[in-house]
């Protein structure tokens, strides 16, 4: 939890002039949309999943990066979001879009509930408590009492939504564009949150709780709500993943998901919004690269890449961006 990134200066001038920002925004939209028409179906699916992972990492970053509460169980919220969407779509024939707000609200509520013990447990104890949540969730999903809803070990099958209004895109392309749109909205909201009074309070609590209280910050209330917001974002990612994969099953949501999200956060950059995007790409594509290098021991290659990465970029991807930004501003007359 080092320097806060993307800080607003006293003049509120982050990212320079208005024209510069408009250009960046246009380029960003183009870069986000173009792959839908350039990539083949499987590659596009992978990129869709990478954006979903980025969104899940962003959720974790809110609570762990910005607020300093270590969660090793965010895979649980990912699972809850996925199952809410899957159950509503397969049992009640809800449209995918209608399930999203419900999945978001359910995850926020669950996150709020988990946030309560979080108030009493600091650091490592919270990490272990959230860990046990992540371990428990797949087993709960398999449980007989819920089998009618969750489909038990078999899971639930879904179908991607068709593009609306007769748009000339494939369901895969439509899925990708939908995921990008939802993710962009969540990134925008998180950016606003982090740069607001609330965001500063989250970081203040992380940096110095005593002083934060003296500034009038109600630590208990803020920490629980942060957990809810964080769970909500990761849950939305889970909901998107259910539809993108067209399938949910308990074994897709093992404890490994939580660790993957944690790796994504650290590699991308703790307490960094842009870093979350990179973290999502990393955790999705680097294992594939590792497998391409060695079919026999992809885990070893992945580990080596991970260690190399952290050795070369200790501040994660966001740390690298910060260094570049610092160098650029120094050169400017």
């Amino acid at each position: 939890m080092t320097r806060m990134d993307e800080s607003l200066g006293p003049s509120g001038a982050a990212g320079g002039s208005r024209a510069w920002r408009a250009t960046l925004l246009t380029l960003g939209i183009f870069a986000a949309v173009a792959p839908a028409f350039l990539l083949e179906s499987f590659q596009l699916f992978q990129l869709t999943m990478a954006v979903i992972m980025a969104l899940a990492v962003l959720g974790l970053n809110i609570v762990t990066g910005y607020n300093g509460q270590i969660s090793l169980g965010h895979g649980a919220f990912f699972a809850v979001g996925a199952y809410v969407t899957a159950i509503l779509m397969s049992h009640f024939d809800w449209s995918f879009w209608a399930t999203l707000p419900v999945a978001a609200l359910v995850c926020a509520a669950v996150g709020y509930g988990v946030g309560f013990p979080a108030l009493r447990l600091g650091g490592l104890y919270l990490a272990l408590t959230t860990f046990s949540l992540a371990v428990a969730v797949p087993q709960i999903l398999k449980h007989k009492a819920l089998e009618d809803w969750t489909g038990g070990v078999q899971g639930l099958f879904l179908v991607k939504p068709d593009p609306p209004f007769g748009l000339a895109v494939t369901p895969d392309q439509w899925m990708y564009l939908s995921v990008v749109a939802v993710a962009a909205l969540c990134f925008w909201g998180t950016w606003n949150l982090v740069h607001s009074r609330i965001g500063r309070a989250l970081m203040a609590i992380r940096d110095n709780p005593t002083a934060a209280q003296a500034m009038g910050m109600d630590i208990s209330a803020l920490k629980t709500k942060t957990f809810a917001a964080s769970a909500m974002v990761t849950g939305i990612a889970g909901a998107l993943s259910a539809v993108a994969i067209e399938f949910v099953a308990p074994d897709s949501f093992t404890f490994g998901v939580s660790i993957t999200l944690f790796v994504g956060m650290v590699v991308g950059g703790v307490a960094s919004i842009l870093g979350s995007l990179f973290g999502g790409l990393f955790v999705l594509f680097v294992p594939n690269i590792a497998e391409a290098i060695s079919k026999a021991a992809p885990g070893v290659i992945y580990g080596v890449i991970l260690i190399l990465f952290l050795f070369l970029l200790p501040g994660g991807f966001a740390g690298l961006l910060r260094q570049i930004a610092a160098r650029l501003t120094r050169r400017r007359p």
Binding site: M1, T2, R3, M4, S7, L8, G9, P10, R197, R200, A201, M203, A204, R206, D207, N208, A211, A212, M215, A271
Partner: peptide, 13 residues
């Protein structure tokens, strides 16, 4: 002080 923040952000808190 909030050590990860700038002077400006500290004052705003």
């Amino acid at each position: 002080l909030f050590r990860s923040m700038s002077v400006w952000e500290n004052v705003l808190t």
